[in-house]
């Protein structure tokens, strides 16, 4: 149970990022930029919380930080119709460089405090009244707030895609922009908005790392989690709960690693660190290509004729 509880906790940043990526991919734009969106969110979130002392402001800043990278991706990949993959990758590098640069400038200004320029007390765990004290299952329900947010996000996103008019249009933009256009929507604008909204959610995923798990920021602290989230989204067949399950699995791989390390089991730490990536690759190999992939993903759509 402890292991499962920590798998959920560790899987949270992946989950929020995957949900953000889901918005972008269902609208037809590959979400390779998740890593950068998370990183920007992690930095901006910590900065906001540290500067104002309010976690809420921090979360808002995290969304803005992720959103900035989202705007970058939306402009280049959707508006200029450049290759989604390379655009996302470049946006990641911009985020890596920008957060690194800002961190260094902050620590220069703050004098000799060095890398520990910003800090924050990690958000405390919380459980719905009563549930936390259940026998056996109890520890599962004692989770930090952003974890609850991620689970709520799964439910909300599932409902949004199926039951809201905007969700329907968003899916149409990812499946067939021509059909969306014929139905009176502007697929390009839908995609742009979906990318930016998704980036804001992914920014929250980054904030989980800096505000909820660590309490500080280090250069490149996402360490490939954005790419794992991308894999989770694919393994989860572009559905929120599928992605959640995949995140739980990757989180579980990392939780196992920590548990074994703590227990002093003599397994090579590098081998253990490899497990989430190997797990992601293995699952991708096992599930193979999918028919659920949005049909028009990554394909730019020219609706110049109407403008």
């Amino acid at each position: 149970m402890d292991l499962l509880a920590s798998a959920i906790r560790i899987g949270t940043p992946l989950l929020l990022a995957a949900l953000g990526g889901l918005l972008s991919e269902r609208a037809g734009v590959f979400a390779v930029g998740l890593e950068g969106m998370m990183l920007a969110g992690a930095f901006a979130g910590l900065f906001g919380a540290w500067a104002t002392g309010s976690a809420a402001v921090g979360l808002l800043c995290a969304m803005l930080g992720g959103g900035v990278i989202g705007v970058l991706v939306a402009v280049v990949a959707v508006r200029s119709r450049a290759d989604n993959m390379v655009t996302g990758l470049s946006a990641n590098i911009v985020a890596l460089g920008a957060t690194g640069m800002l961190l260094r400038l902050l620590s220069q200004r703050g004098g000799a405090s060095g890398g520990e320029a910003m800090h924050w007390v990690p958000l405390a765990a919380w459980s719905p009244p009563g549930l936390g004290r259940l026998p056996v299952l109890g520890p599962l329900f004692v989770q930090p707030p952003l974890t609850w947010l991620g689970l709520g996000g799964c439910v909300a996103l599932t409902w949004f895609l199926r039951h809201s008019a905007i969700g329907l249009t968003l899916r149409a933009a990812g499946e067939s922009p021509a059909a969306a256009l014929a139905a009176g929507a502007d697929p390009r604008r839908v995609r742009e908005r979906a990318v930016v909204a998704g980036a804001m959610v992914a920014g929250l995923g980054g904030a989980v790392l800096s505000l909820q798990q660590v309490g500080s920021f280090t250069e490149g602290m996402t360490g490939g989690r954005g790419y794992l989230a991308l894999a989770a989204l694919i393994v989860g067949r572009w559905t929120p709960f599928g992605a959640a399950l995949a995140c739980l699995m990757f989180g579980g791989a990392e939780a196992l690693e920590l548990h074994l390390e703590a227990a002093g089991v003599g397994i090579n730490p590098y081998l253990l660190q490899m497990t989430p990536y190997l797990a992601a690759l293995t699952v991708l190999v096992l599930v193979g290509p999918s028919a659920q992939m949005p049909a028009a993903i990554g394909r730019s759509y020219a609706n110049d004729e109407t403008r």
Partner: peptide, 28 residues
């Protein structure tokens, strides 16, 4: 009615009818 249909193949008939139609409501 275009010569090449502008339907979303992965969606149901109902969803295709509701797509972009204000009458279907914000909450479908």
């Amino acid at each position: 009615i275009h010569q090449h249909f502008t339907l979303v193949e992965a969606m149901t008939v109902l969803e295709n009818v509701m797509l972009g139609w204000p009458r279907a409501g914000r909450v479908l």
